[in-house]
Design a protein around this nucleic acid. Structure first.
Lengths: 122, 122, 122, 122
DNA sequence: GTGGTCTAGACCACC
DNA sequence: GTGGTCTAGACCACG
């Protein structure tokens, strides 16, 4: 388990994994996150790196610290995350992406073959 | 004119702008690229940074150096660029992007309202 | 009842509450402190944490242990506490605080609207 | 220059110093912050520690990064900081502090001898 | 056991 | 030169 892409900082990739687990419902409100040390061992990275990843999750109020116990997923974390990310994606990333896709001459059908096929059956 | 995003290197952002101009047909084969110095002044960045941006365009055979004159867009640059970028995008970026979009609960219709509407009229 | 601030140790926050009760006269000399177990249940924290909080009160001669009975507020506890805390506050905390308040551009009137108003009537 | 209080993390104390410099006008918009490495040498602490301190200043939009150049105080940083801190102080710190001061039997005059004297001359 | 902080030393990309 | 990231190893307070 050390399939890190080199272009993104590891701590951010760790973050992404945790976020994905929350989005996918693998981590539910009240669940404990894997401990800093455990994750560090599992992924064979430095505890500090995990720590940094976790810190931002706390700042984003997705997770709450229980002193001496660990980090726990907050109530409503998934919904908050979904809303935040959705908004950010549509506002910050999609416009440029959309433009780029159009410039490349790609169409919806190239990217979503199944869905557009389904659409056509309407 | 200094709306740089801090997450991408400036030299790459300069590159993107030039590439976009080629894709959009604003720069055609035989046209000269803006001079390093000019671009540096316009964008208020270090000429070295522009140089670096241009260098890679040369290596990708999209432009050619004419000694003492500057850089010129090569014949077939647009087509080459299109093919390259298209392939790279579909292979490297789209899969992850697609997954992310699905996780956010976004659908084709959220992203391409016009196009999917058009589809429905078929 | 679990409105803990995460920046201060819980055991100290428990302590503060007890001290406040003594200062406010809710707990008078001879009164028994709530039992460790009771407090632990009420606040839903570890008895060890309560213990630790109480221990320091004992060391500061504010309460006395009666074996098998529990902890009791000592004679003169309030006066002792008042003098100690007052002195400590003025010496250790106020100078820095004062500086900070001034830097924020806050004045006595922002903080004590009633009292300064009363002053003016003299 | 290593008068660190042991109770607050060093990186936060570094932060405080920089914030104080902004509040006091020693650092004005457009000014560069001391470089991470320089500060580390001056204060004889680890560059990483300085880095952490600076990172939060960036996140609070008090400072902007110029790639390869360093960190610069943003336009309006002082005003933003003042407003933020003032609000936070009055909302989060003052109420508890006020209560504590009253419990200690301290009055405005104990804390602001000069100002209340001036008031009385009204 | 938990997370938080710090150090020393290293390597990276960028300007 | 700048900041950003990572590691290995240490020590702390807290529960």
């Amino acid at each position: 388990m050390s399939d890190w892409k080199d272009d993104a900082p590891i701590y951010r990739q760790v973050q992404e994994r945790v976020l994905a687990m929350i989005l996918d419902g693998e981590l539910k409100p009240g669940d404990a996150l894997p401990s800093v040390r455990q994750l560090a061992v599992d992924y064979r990275i430095n505890p500090l790196t995990v720590s940094r990843a976790y810190q931002e999750l706390d700042e984003a109020t997705l997770v709450e610290k229980r002193r001496g116990l660990g980090l726990y997923v907050r109530e409503g974390a998934r919904e908050l995350l979904l809303a935040q990310e959705r908004e950010r994606f549509l506002r910050e990333e999609w416009p440029a992406l959309h433009r780029r896709i159009e410039r490349l001459g790609l169409t919806v059908r190239d990217l979503w073959p199944e869905e557009t096929a389904r659409e056509r059956h309407h």
